[in-house]
């Protein structure tokens, strides 16, 4: 069960522009309008989940009821560096090159 303050607020309309930014996806104005319309409809539909009485019902987070699955602390060989860097879109001095990170 999760009980974080403010997380149980009543569902309001989806703000596609804001959520797309959270999800790191640029949308064209056309996409934004279309997705807003489509997702308004989908969100309205999925609110159906609030119809059945779920008080006292435990949430199902996993389809299997197993606990305590661990691995031993044993090192295993990883990937060859050449193979790793061959998949990288951009490389600098053995590092994955990215735009400047500002801290």
């Amino acid at each position: 069960m999760t009980s974080e303050e403010g997380r149980g607020a009543d569902a309001a309309a989806i703000d596609v522009a804001y959520v797309a930014r959270l999800a790191r996806i640029d949308l064209t104005p056309e996409e934004q309008a279309r997705f807003q319309r489509q997702l308004d409809e989908v969100v309205a539909y999925v609110r159906k989940i609030r119809e059945p009485d779920t008080s006292g019902i435990e949430p199902t987070a996993h389809a299997v009821a197993v606990r305590n699955v661990f691995r031993d602390d044993a090192p295993r060989p990883g990937l060859d560096r050449g193979e790793v860097m061959a998949n990288a879109p951009a490389v600098v001095q053995g590092l994955f090159r990215v735009p400047q990170i500002v801290e």
Binding site: R76, G78, R81, M85
Partner: peptide, 19 residues
């Protein structure tokens, strides 16, 4: 994952598909 944790290894030499 099973990758080692040694400090100071060559960059991106202690990596696997998981990490």
């Amino acid at each position: 994952c099973g990758c080692g944790t040694r400090y100071g290894a060559e960059p991106n030499s202690q990596v696997c598909p998981v990490c």
